[in-house]
C-alpha cells in the first residue's frame, strides 16, 4: 500500500524524482524486484499459502465442494471426527509407525554413515554410498511393485530368507500384525540413504584435528564413537530424528501401493495400515467428506508444524552440514 501511495505522490518522471535520491530510484528498483518475484510468488500464494488459509475455513464449516451453501459449525467437524473409531485407529497406527520406524531409521543411518565414513577414503567408497542412497530417488510405485512380490507369502524373497534362517513364515502384507511393519521395511529401504547422507555430512564437519587428537590418545572403535562422534553428532542426530518424523508422519505413496489392490483396499487389512495421510485421502477423495478431512488435516498440520518449527530452530542454531 505504501508503494502505491508514494507512486502517486511522486511520479518518477518529475524533476524532483531523481534528486531526492530515493523515491524515483527506489520505486523503480522495487517494481523490478516485484516483477522478478511475481511468477514464484503467484505459485506459492495460489497453491500453498492460499490453500493453507482456506484449510482453516473449510474445517470450521459444513461445506460441500459442489454446492455454494456452507454453514458455520465451529468445532462440529472435530467432534464428529472424534466419534469415528477409525480416526483414533489411524492416529494409533501413525504413532506406531513413527515411533518404531524413526529410531530404527536413525540408528541404521548412523551405523551406515560411520561405516561409509571409513569406506569413503578407500577405492569404491563413493559407489557404496551411491548404492545405499539410490533407493531414495527411485519412484515409489515402481519399486513398491517389486516389494509386493518380495513380501509374497508363497514365493516371496522375504519368506525365503526367513526359511533359510529357520524362522516361521509370515503373511506380511496380508497380515493384520505384519502389514504395517512390512511398510516400515520398505520405507527403511527407501529412505535410510537420505539420512545416511545427512549423517555423513555431519561427520564430515567434525574437524580433522579432533579425530586425530583422539586417535593419538589411542581411542578407536567404540571408545572413539563415544568420545568423539556421538557428542559431535548430537545436533545432527536430533535434526535427523525430527526430519524423519516429519517425513514418516506423511508417508502415503508406499502405503497406498503396498496395501492396495487385492489386499482389501489401501489401508488394510482391517485398517491396520490406515495412517493419518491415508485416512485424509480416503475421507476426502473416496467418500468426499471434505470438511471432515479438513479437520483431520488441521490436526496433522499443527502436529507437523510444531515438529518443523523445532527442526528449523535446531537447523538455524547448528548449521553444520553446509
Amino acid at each position: 500500500m505504501a508503494q502505491a501511495r508514494s507512486l502517486t505522490q511522486n511520479p518518477p518522471q518529475s524533476a524532483s524524482a531523481a534528486r531526492s535520491d530515493s523515491w524515483g530510484t527506489r520505486i523503480k528498483t522495487s517494481i523490478l524486484g516485484y516483477g522478478l518475484i511475481l511468477p514464484s510468488l503467484l505459485v506459492f500464494l495460489t497453491f500453498f499459502y492460499g490453500p493453507a488459509i482456506f484449510l482453516a475455513y473449510i474445517a470450521f464449516f459444513h461445506w460441500n465442494i459442489f454446492s455454494a451453501n456452507s454453514t458455520f459449525v465451529g468445532l462440529g467437524n472435530f467432534l464428529k471426527l472424534f466419534h469415528q473409531p477409525v480416526f483414533w485407529q489411524s492416529l494409533l497406527n501413525t504413532a506406531y509407525y513413527v515411533v518404531v520406524l524413526v529410531p530404527v531409521t536413525a540408528l541404521l543411518a548412523l551405523a551406515l554413515a560411520l561405516l561409509l565414513r571409513e569406506g569413503l577414503s578407500r577405492r569404491g567408497g563413493g559407489i557404496s554410498r551411491a548404492f545405499i542412497f539410490l533407493p531414495h530417488v527411485t519412484p515409489v510405485v515402481a519399486t513398491s511393485i517389486i516389494w509386493v512380490w518380495i513380501f509374497n507369502p508363497q514365493f516371496g524373497l522375504a519368506n525365503t530368507v526367513l526359511h533359510f534362517l529357520h524362522l516361521p513364515a509370515l503373511n506380511w502384507l496380508e497380515s493384520v500384525h505384519w502389514a504395517l511393519p512390512s511398510v516400515m521395511v520398505y520405507t527403511l529401504w527407501h529412505s535410510v540413504g537420505l539420512y545416511t547422507v545427512l549423517f555423513l555430512a555431519g561427520l564430515a564437519s567434525i574437524p580433522r584435528s579432533v579425530i586425530e587428537a583422539a586417535t593419538t590418545d589411542g581411542a578407536h572403535g567404540w571408545r572413539m564413537f563415544k568420545r568423539v562422534f556421538w557428542p559431535m553428532l548430537g545436533p545432527i542426530t536430533f535434526f535427523v530424528v525430527v526430519l524423519a518424523s516429519i517425513n514418516t508422519m506423511q508417508t502415503f505413496s508406499q502405503i497406498y501401493t503396498l496395501t492396495g489392490g487385492p489386499h482389501g483396499g489401501a489401508g488394510g487389512p482391517a485398517f491396520s495400515t490406515t495412517t493419518d495421510s491415508l485416512l485424509i485421502y480416503q475421507t476426502a477423495f473416496l467418500y468426499l467428506h471434505f470438511s471432515l478431512a479438513s479437520a483431520m488435516s488441521i490436526i496433522l498440520f499443527i502436529l507437523i508444524m510444531t515438529l518443523t518449527l523445532i527442526q528449523k530452530w535446531v537447523a538455524d542454531r547448528f548449521v553444520f552440514y553446509r
Binding site: 500453498f48 499459502y49 492460499g50 490453500p51 493453507a52 482456506f54 484449510l55 473449510i58 516429519i246 508422519m249 506423511q250 502415503f252 493419518d276 495421510s277 485424509i280 485421502y281 476426502a284 471434505f290 478431512a293 479438513s294 488435516s297 488441521i298 496433522l300 498440520f301 507437523i304 508444524m305 518443523t308 518449527l309 528449523k312
Partner: peptide, 10 residues
Amino acid sequence: MLPQQALLVP
C-alpha cells in the same frame, strides 16, 4: 515448512 499431506484437501 508447510506439511504437504495436510494441504491436499484445500
